[in-house]
């Protein structure tokens, strides 16, 4: 596996499946009374967050701590881009502190790649969301959740129909999910007004639909993206009402869904805009579970990037034994 996780493109098919399999094993830890493994004892993991994201940060923090790593939270909010310390100086500081892995969230697309490529530091770099580029661990946890429900006991997501709905243009979650879901054999449809699809989307391995009604009945997964209200001011859509009418997941559309189909959302949600409360809280919604799975998937990523060898059958047994203890 690559030393860094900057983009889903850093992963082969086998890598991606291995992460999901490892996450499935590690998920057992979360159910044990003592939620801790000694794997990363003595290793230092830094949460370098240039943007506020409490949920992603605590998810990574919990993952690292369950693997016994030392976790340093470095909140660099407000010091991003032109203000304050440069990314380079921050990286050199972290290197001097001996960081084995840096989990970076940054408002600028490509900032994790800069951190990884510039040889400012030697540790692994994990992208926890960069600008409008990618958010690979979110895609991994989404794939993990889908596989668990719809393809239990199988390696990948072959043949599943996934609709990704909303502001694809500005969504790092969408970019990572398109790449990963396609890699794992799912058929992805992007559902958005043309204003919220990037020019160049024609080259993506996806289908496009301009309304949720067209796809909701035949989808195995409906993944809603957060729509930011300020996009209206930039002329991406005329009004919240019009957006919601065409692209929102409301009660009527929920009824059109197959009974086994899943409702997903990476959070935080705008209830009443892209998703209605009854959809978010429905039996088909796995939104809360996505959060729980996030910890397992991030444990797997840290484990595989820092711990080295994959969980062999034997290791896995040891793990299971420990869990029993």
């Amino acid at each position: 596996m690559n030393r860094h996780l900057l983009s889903i493109n850093d992963l082969t098919y086998e890598d991606a499946v291995l992460i999901l399999d490892t996450a499935a094993e590690l998920a057992k830890i979360s159910d044990a009374p003592v939620k801790k493994l000694p794997t990363l004892r003595g290793r230092t993991v830094v949460n370098l967050f240039f943007e506020d994201s409490t949920r992603t940060r605590i998810s990574f923090e919990a993952a690292a701590k369950r693997l016994s790593a030392d976790v340093i939270n470095f909140s660099a909010k407000g010091s991003s881009l032109s203000k304050g310390e440069s990314l380079k100086d921050t990286a050199l500081t972290l290197q001097a502190m001996g960081a084995d892995a840096v989990i970076i969230r940054h408002g600028a697309s490509g900032a994790p790649a800069r951190l990884a490529d510039q040889q400012w530091m030697t540790g692994s770099v994990i992208n926890a969301g960069d600008g409008t580029h990618e958010h690979p661990t979110q895609a991994l946890l989404d794939a993990f959740t889908i596989r668990k429900h719809l393809r239990p006991g199988q390696k990948d997501l072959s043949g599943l129909k996934v609709a990704i709905v909303g502001d694809v243009l500005h969504s790092r979650v969408a970019r990572s999910n398109v790449l990963l879901l396609h890699k794992l054999g799912a058929i992805v449809t992007l559902v958005a007004p043309p204003t919220l699809l990037p020019v160049g989307v024609e080259s993506w391995p996806v289908e496009i639909a301009f309304g949720l009604d067209l796809v909701v009945a035949k989808s195995d997964v409906v993944m809603m993206l957060r729509i930011q209200r300020e996009r209206m001011a930039d002329l991406f859509f005329p009004s919240e009402r019009e957006y919601s009418r065409q692209f929102g997941l409301n009660g009527d559309r929920l009824k059109m869904m197959q009974p086994t189909a899943l409702v997903m959302h990476p959070g935080p949600m705008n209830r009443g805009l892209e998703i209605s409360a009854d959809s978010a809280d429905s039996l088909q919604s796995v939104i809360v579970e996505q959060v729980a799975n996030g910890v397992s998937v991030r444990m797997a990523v840290l484990y595989l990037l820092l711990g080295g060898s994959p969980l062999s059958a034997e290791n896995s047994k040891v793990l299971s034994d420990k869990v029993v203890i």
Partner: peptide, 13 residues
């Protein structure tokens, strides 16, 4: 440049 590469990289076109 706005096109396939900017779409992929998430950089404004």
């Amino acid at each position: 440049n706005e096109g396939e590469i900017s779409a992929k990289l998430g950089l404004k076109g």
